[in-house]
Simulated assay, not measured.
Amino acid sequence: MVADLDFVPAPLDRSATFYVAGHRGLVGSAIWRKLQSEGFTNLEGRTSTELDLKNRDDVFAFFSEIRPEYVVLAAAKVGGILANNTYPVDFLSDNLRIQVNVLDAAREHGVKRLLFLGSSCIYPKFADQPIREESLLTGHLEPTNDAYAIAKIAGIMHIQAIRRQYGLPWISAMPTNLYGPGDNFSPTGSHVLPALIRRYDEAARSGVETVSNWGTGSPRREFLHVEDMASACLHLLENYDGPSQVNVGTGTDVTIKDIAKIVAEAVGYSGDIEWDTTKPDGTPRKLLDVTKLTEAGWSASIGLQEGIRTTVEWYRENLASLRV
């Protein structure tokens, strides 16, 4: 484990004020559940209606009011390849403002430990596989989501600058593709796995004989269940300190075709699967090197088939209230 500044690995104070920014989102809600299960008794969260993190004055007033000791910055504007490619200005502008406001307010009010969450899309499109943390800024980004990636890279740089200038033991974590309860299943805003779950479930229910997916199905992706991600976040807050972002994943990947087959089986779809090769594939492979994470003492525990099966169950149970 890397250690610098004055951080000493230790359990966080379960009675301290802990702000989870984005506590209703996929990652934030999982972190909230994890913290509750671990005995944290003073959790703070605000919906975007209650607190617009893009409004700097409101963010500073909020931090002045609650004065958290710990913060996880999981709030972000997120979306799949279609949304990122269609609205790059939104993904760049919104995420930069959210990050700068929260990080500046947290610094001004002396937050002891802060975890900034990014995305594996920060790495170059053709980075050596598996992708090590040192690959950051060594090549061109995937153009379909470069605006979002630039915003997240800025967040990492912001954390590193805070450490250098103010000596605060704040850290960054870069998760691989996440999925699970609370995901976005919108046909235009979702990532690949929830999009496949929705598509195949609807096909199974309506008796559609053929499902068409974007691209060739050959790209390889790594998937991490969001409950594992939440576990990793708390573990890093209590056990890791260093200027480098930490990759969070499973260390294994599968093709999109493989994922489609697992999803089809999980929802009970038995029709044909076609691939629309006129649509983009995105990055050919994106597997994270999780050596730094395993050296810090954590590894994933939820298998892909089990995770997809339980996510399908959750999707069906909550279909009426989902973000669609």
Rank of each mutant, 00 (worst) to 15 (best):
F7H: 14
V8K: 03
P11V: 04
T17V: 12
G22R: 10
V27D: 03
V27I: 09
G28D: 08
I31L: 15
L35P: 06
G39K: 09
E44A: 15
E44W: 13
T49K: 11
E50V: 11
L53H: 04
D57H: 00
F62W: 13
I66T: 03
R67I: 14
R67N: 05
V78L: 07
A83Q: 08
N95F: 05
R107A: 10
R107K: 14
R107D: 09
E108Q: 13
E108S: 12
K112M: 07
R113C: 01
G118L: 03
C121K: 09
Y123S: 01
Q129G: 01
E134D: 15
T144M: 07
D146I: 03
I150Y: 15
G155R: 03
I156D: 09
I162D: 12
I162C: 09
R163W: 05
G167L: 01
W170F: 07
M174Q: 14
P181L: 00
N184Y: 05
H191T: 15
P194T: 13
I197M: 01
R199L: 11
Y200C: 13
A203R: 04
T216V: 08
H225M: 14
V226H: 02
D228R: 00
H235R: 01
P243N: 04
I256P: 04
E265S: 14
V267R: 00
V267C: 05
S270N: 10
S270I: 06
G271Q: 05
D272V: 13
T278I: 05
K279G: 09
G282I: 11
G282L: 08
D289W: 14
T291H: 09
T294A: 07
W298P: 00
T311Q: 04
V312W: 12
E313P: 11
W314Y: 08
R316M: 11
E317W: 12
S321T: 15
